[in-house]
């Protein structure tokens, strides 16, 4: 499609340039106005510089957030203006919708199973990568690769691996033969949908989490470990009594981000077809209600439910973390 449409090209280009120029003008004007209002030079420059971002945030984030909260209390099919229905959407969601609770159950179970397993895996990988081995840079790059691949591509890859005659079943075929059983159908079997997604989530072990934990491991003070060794502590004791507490803040971070990410699982389940909608995660359900059923009001209500769910779970984890996360600073304060 290398056709040249001068009119279209130039008009689009001029629009872009115009927006850019106007934005600069707006920033300069903001600066000038703030200076007139006797704002410090530094602060005025700061406000002027964040103006494009601020406008973007207000128009593309803050406004949609607020609007979706309003929509959650309406019936809105996009074609007609939203109609206020009060708590109707929430009533339907909690008490009538036969698909809502199964979706919540799937999403929460997935988060509770996949996050701890994923953290354990990420930690194990990080410990391995923290060793002094040859070409450590190469290994670290290699293990980071999965998070560089686009999610849609990995979803298709896993669908293929889980196929009835795919890689996983081929690998398992000696076991099937030994146990004299039918090959598992994975995503095609309703009962195996959740385990299949959990197995698939191990893909996320490698990547950002490993890197964060690796950095945390490298930050554990050598002298603590050496002192423990001198005192006769073995490798396991050192790991559980020193390393783990020292990296616990990073573990907390990984856990919270993991829970949020798991509850928002979207791309993979959207690409993988499962029987009877057994793989409908909450986020996918929101998408279906909003963009295939055109119930934007109901979709917004579920989205806000998901937000509150994430908020509550995050707060619970934060609360619980006080029991196991160790912050050097706090202990010092208490000790004083």
């Amino acid at each position: 499609m290398a056709e040249w449409h001068a009119e279209w090209y130039l008009s689009t280009l001029s629009h872009w340039l115009l927006v850019g120029a106007a934005m600069i003008g707006l920033m300069l004007a903001t600066y000038a106005v703030l200076r007139r209002l006797k704002v410090r030079r530094e602060a005025a420059a700061g406000y002027a510089l964040i103006l494009p971002w601020l406008l973007g945030f207000l128009i593309w984030n803050a406004y949609p957030f607020a609007y979706s909260l309003y929509l959650a209390f309406t019936e809105y099919d996009v074609l007609q203006p939203p109609k206020w229905v009060g708590l109707e959407n929430f009533k339907y969601m909690f008490f009538e919708d036969p698909r809502f609770w199964p979706s919540v159950k799937l999403t929460v179970l997935y988060a509770f199973i996949s996050v701890p397993l994923g953290m354990a895996g990420a930690l194990a990988t990080a410990v391995l990568l923290a060793q002094d081995v040859k070409a450590v840079g190469f290994w670290r790059t290699l293990y980071y690769l999965p998070s560089v691949l686009p999610a849609a591509a990995t979803a298709l890859l896993w669908r293929w691996m889980f196929a009835s005659k795919g890689l996983i079943n081929t690998l398992l075929s000696p076991i099937y033969r030994l146990l004299d059983m039918e090959p598992l159908m994975w995503f095609a079997d309703e009962r195996l949908v959740l385990p299949s997604f959990v197995i698939m989530s191990f893909w996320g072990i490698f990547g950002a989490n490993t890197v964060i934990l690796l950095a945390a491991l490298k930050n554990v003070p050598k002298e603590l470990l050496e002192a423990a060794t001198v005192d006769g502590a073995g490798p396991w004791t050192r790991f559980f009594k020193i390393t783990l507490p020292m990296i616990s803040p990073s573990l907390l971070y990984v856990m919270i981000m993991g829970i949020i990410g798991a509850l928002q699982n979207f791309t993979a389940p959207l690409f993988i077809t499962t029987p009877s909608g057994a793989g409908t995660f909450l986020n996918v359900y929101i998408y279906q209600q909003g963009f295939t059923q055109y119930k934007m009001g109901y979709a917004s209500a579920i989205a806000w439910f998901l937000m509150v769910l994430i908020l509550i779970l995050t707060l619970l984890v934060m609360r619980w973390s006080e029991a196991w996360v160790y912050y050097e600073v706090e202990v010092r304060k208490k000790g004083r």
Binding site: L18, V19, A22, G25, L26, V33
Partner: peptide
């Protein structure tokens, strides 16, 4: 300055 500001805003809006 106010005039400049408003003109610029109008420009952004029309451009968008």
């Amino acid at each position: 300055i106010l005039t400049v500001w408003l003109t610029a805003l109008a420009l952004v809006l029309t451009a968008c």
